[in-house]
Structures are given as C-alpha cells and as structure tokens.
Design a protein around this nucleic acid. Structure first.
Lengths: 214, 214
DNA sequence: TAGATTGTTAATCGATTAACAATC
DNA sequence: TAGATTGTTAATCGATTAACAATC
C-alpha cells in the first residue's frame, strides 16, 4: 500500500464526509460484506462515487482498480485518518434536557469517546450520577479536566453562560469544544470548536417550505 | 423600499446564514439597539461584512448607505424571507433521550414552531404528556398529522425505524422532515429534509485534534 | 481478454472576497 | 462637505463533476 499524503491540506468538506463513509463501512463490515465499490457506497449514503474517490485519494490509494474497496481495510484506514483508533475523554457542562440526552447517548463509546465527567451549577444535581458518571460543580472544571485527561468539552449550558464555560474549559487544557449553545465562542486558535446550531435547521426548513407550500 | 428579487436562485449557504442574522438582530432589538452595520453584525456572529451584504442583496436593499441597517426593519424583513411570521405545526416521532429533549425544547415556540403531537411505539409512553403534548401510538400518524395540520415531522427514532417513520410522515402529508437518525432518508422531491447528524461533528473533531495534539 | 472500477487530471460550477461607485 | 457604509460587479478561491488512462 502507498504512503499517506501527510502534508496536503484537506478540505473541511472532505473531513465531514469521512465519518459518513466510516459509519456505513462499519455497518457493512458487521454484515459480512467484504468488498464495496464507490458507486455502491455512494448510492447508500447519498454522495457521488467521484466525490468518494476524490476524498479518499487525498489520503492514499485504498482501492483496487476493477474491483473496489476491501471493506475491512478501508474502514481501518479511515478510522486511522479520523483518529478513531484511540480513546478520547470528554466532559459535558450543563445538564439541561440536551445535556442529559447527550450524557445518555450510547453512540459515544463505540467510537472511542468516553464520557468522564459532567458539570453543572445546580446544587440538586451535583453529586448525582448519570450512567455512572458523576456530576460535579463547574468550579471543579480545572481540577477534574486535568486529573482525568479530558480533551473534549461539550457545552450544553444556556447561551449566556456558554462563553464562560468555554473559557474555563480552555484554561483547564481542553483542546476541542463541541458547542450546542447558539453563540459564537471565542477560543485560542489552538482549540478546535465544532458547533451544532440546531435552530438553524428548523429556520431554513421554514424558508424552503414557505416557498413550496402554496 | 425596493421589491424582493423573487425569482433568483438563492444558495443554500446564504439561507443557512439568515437564521444567524435573524437571531442576533432579534437580540439586538430586545436590547433597544436601533441601527447596526454589517461590520458590527459580522463581528458578533463571525461572518464577514461583505458576506452579509451579499446575502441580503439577494433579497432586496434593506440598508441605508452611510448609515447601516435599521434593526427592527431588517429583523422583520429576514423573518418574512424565512417564513417565520407564521405558525408551523410540528410533530416528534421517537421519545428516546433526544426526542424527549427536543419535546422540552423551549426554543421552538418563540419562532412560531408549535409542537402538536408526539409519537412513539412503547405502550408505557402512549397516553402520557410532555409539556401538555400527548404521546400517541405511531399507528395514528396519518390521522393526527392530517387532523392537526402538521407540516414538519421530527425523526428521533433509532436508525432502523427512521425510514419507515419518514414514509408514514410523508404519506400523511408532512412537507418537511427534521432528521436526527444517522441515515439518508428517501423522500419525494416535494419533501424537504434537514438532517442533524450529530456524530459527524465529534468524528471530525477527532481528526483535527489528532493532527494537532502532539 | 473483456468488463469493471479506481485514481487523477482537467473542466466546471459555485461561493467568498475584494474593490469601489453610489449615496446617506 | 467629509466620513461612513451600503449594494453590486469583478476577481479569486475552493469544491464538485466529468472524463479517462491505468489496471485489476
């Protein structure tokens, strides 16, 4: 197999599609499928085969001409590219409805994301457990983040507290923020922020439905 | 004021930024701010001023040269563009952790999104209420969607049931699907799907952190 | 060998950024 | 008037699609 092209700059669009490929490949692997073509994969996840081949080619040559991709091998390769072959320790700040839902999200662990701590400010919640993970007061963010080697912090606090929590996270050494608050977070360039702005989806839906409905 | 440019094709990127503008403008309005420049707005939400002006220019001329935008007027205009000046009736299918969180999401109603029904298959949940909204058996989707004039259906069922629920929704007359299941849904072209694929954010984060961390 | 499918280059498409005239 | 800021056109940048040689 060829070497990865380590120094090329990869587009964000490509990176956002890799998890899609990975997920479907893993499913195929579990179903015992050994080979898949870019055409087949593309049809299943809604991406053109050219796009898939282009995306993958940024990292190396994973397929066999005239044959397709070996599912097990490609899965392993994409997993490696995405850094999913290691454990990431994560924390949640804010046990509202959404934080609670995320704390219960089983989807984390299979991919190496391990919830290690939960933070809130409500005295009634502190000391309780969600799925065996303890809820701590937010004042303990510095201590716990460091002690448990947590790299990723989830922000599910109300918008008005989101920046403060983020700052605490960053000062505690967090390297990635998964933000669900509907504001733009200020972080140093060394910290990576992924924002899930849920209300945007609904509003854009409203736009399209308005135009189409009558 | 000038006429809107009704027949131009607007990019999806533009539409996805409008809710961002709208939200910040609404906040500004509540704070009593009367005028805002594209520069100021852009700084606050992390979009370049040129981009904002370009986006808005697709719909009309909403600003005053040398002055900026009247907050109240621009808010109203964007709200109109997005179709937020009317009520949208929505339903949720799947009362797992995420469905439950969304059912409790207060963010809906202020923008005219009104939760009208919840569906699940679990006999223990049927007949119960979340925030005064009743949980019905999914078999009643056709009846309830029609009776309550529900236009938008949320999908928070497990992946393996997501397509069936979607099909039920569509056959019942739903025009928009807000999908949280990690699969590609098949719908007629007349139905608009917005997907929130939460696990992608975490995986792409893993990619960036891997590259940066050591 | 013939058919299938990859990997990659070139062409196209679309979105962002720069620049600036218009004008408040 | 001078300074500020919009709206828009042109230039640039980036991402997708098309095409096809390579090869299994």
């Amino acid at each position: 197999m060829k070497e990865h092209k380590e120094n090329a700059v990869i587009s964000k669009a490509t990176i956002d599609r890799l998890p899609l490929y990975y997920r479907y490949l893993k499913l195929s692997q579990e179903e015992g499928i050994e080979i898949i073509s870019s055409d087949e994969l593309g049809r299943k996840i809604g991406v053109t085969p050219e796009q898939i081949r282009k995306d993958l080619s940024a990292f190396g040559e994973f397929g066999k001409k005239g044959v397709g991709y070996y599912v097990r091998e490609l899965t392993r390769n994409i997993g490696e590219i995405l850094g999913l072959n290691r454990q990431w320790n994560i924390a949640i700040a804010g046990v509202g409805h959404l934080g609670w839902a995320l704390a219960n999200y089983a989807n984390f662990s299979p991919q190496g994301f391990q919830l290690q701590a939960i933070f809130d400010i409500d005295p009634d919640k502190i000391g309780r457990y969600i799925n065996e993970i303890e809820i701590f007061h937010i004042a303990r963010i510095p201590e716990i983040i460091a002690a448990r080697n947590i790299q990723i912090g989830i922000v599910t606090v109300p918008a008005e507290y989101a920046q403060d929590i983020t700052t605490s996270y960053v000062e505690a050494g967090i390297k990635g923020i998964w933000n669900f608050a509907p504001i733009k977070l200020e972080v140093p360039t060394t910290v990576h922020v992924v924002s899930e702005d849920l209300s945007i989806g609904l509003s854009s839906m409203s736009y399209y439905l308005s135009r189409q409905l009558y």
